[in-house]
């Protein structure tokens, strides 16, 4: 009983820890600092505006401000064109989902893809465009999906504004988050849309977007109403090397085995000790 009381007292003393605002923990977590510093991730900036005066090159190499392309709600994707992992999957998912939507591309919304790799050129953008327009189906108007490239400075302004952190890595170019940003005509961030992954009964990894999410976001963008992102299981594109995971699983195995052993001994003890007789004679 004394031991139990001690435990209880210890628990009471540890409680004030939880009353602190958890500043320590949070500052260490990835936040949306721009450029190449910090961990890759998304720091959502719903309701804020992106700089529409930022200048990019279109597929023909002409300079254009974002403002010239923002004539209707925009679904913005940020990738790099030489990516051979998640980016092609994301763009194909966009192409497929766009094919399923009842909303009309070029009338109800536009698609814009910006490369955050300053080494990408209008030529690589043009090649990407050909691929994905084809995938979106014959009726998809080519003007409704623009593929842009730009300078380091302009790229960073946009990344900063949407709260994306990307990081160069040696293995495959960039580590970066995978998400779409839906914007209103004025460049206001309406909602972030994350992919859902379903590789059901198929060894090939396939990425999908819910047409439901896109429709709702675009309709809200037309009204200028900001929303709340639900699918927060954010996907990342990064090389995964499970270093040191073994120690973790070993700890789990050992503690699991100990707990299980204790429980089995408890059961055996109960079986052997049988019924208590003292109590009945009281």
């Amino acid at each position: 009983m004394k031991l139990l009381l001690l435990m209880l007292i210890a628990a009471c003393f540890s409680m004030p820890v939880f009353l602190l605002p958890e500043a320590q923990g949070h500052e260490a977590l990835p936040s949306g600092s721009s450029g190449a510093s910090g961990d890759p991730g998304v720091n959502e900036r719903v309701g804020q505006n992106i700089p529409l005066e930022a200048v990019f090159y279109d597929e023909q190499g002409h300079t254009t401000t974002l403002r010239q392309l923002f004539k209707r709600p925009v679904v913005l994707s940020l990738v790099y064109y030489s990516c051979d992992r998640e980016c092609p999957l994301l763009l194909s998912a966009v192409a497929e989902a766009a094919g399923e939507l009842k909303l009309k591309p070029g009338k109800d919304y536009s698609l814009i893809t910006i490369s955050f790799d300053p080494d990408d050129t209008p030529k690589t953008a043009r090649e990407a465009k050909e691929n994905y327009i084809k995938l979106a189906g014959g009726a998809f108007p080519a003007d409704a999906w623009r593929f842009l490239t730009g300078t380091n400075e302009n790229i960073n302004r946009v990344l900063e504004a949407v709260g994306f952190t990307v990081k160069r890595d040696e293995i495959h170019g960039f580590s970066h988050p995978v998400a779409l940003v839906v914007l209103s005509t004025e460049g206001k961030i309406i909602r972030y849309v994350y992919e859902t992954e379903d590789n059901f009964f198929s060894s090939r990894k396939r990425v999908a977007l819910q047409p439901f999410d896109l429709t709702l976001s675009i309709q809200d963008a037309a009204k200028g109403k900001t929303g709340f992102s639900i699918k927060r299981a954010l996907a990342y594109c990064f090389p995964h090397e499970p270093k040191g995971r073994e120690a973790f699983f070993n700890i789990m195995k050992i503690s699991g085995a100990i707990i299980f052993f204790l429980i089995v001994s408890f059961f055996v003890y109960l079986l052997l000790s049988g019924r208590k007789t003292r109590n009945r004679q009281e």
Partner: peptide, 17 residues
């Protein structure tokens, strides 16, 4: 993980959600 930033479940730290 919240207090000390150990990366058991956070993919950006090599963890697994």
């Amino acid at each position: 993980e919240r207090f000390f930033g150990l990366g058991f479940f956070d993919p950006s730290k090599g963890g697994d959600p």
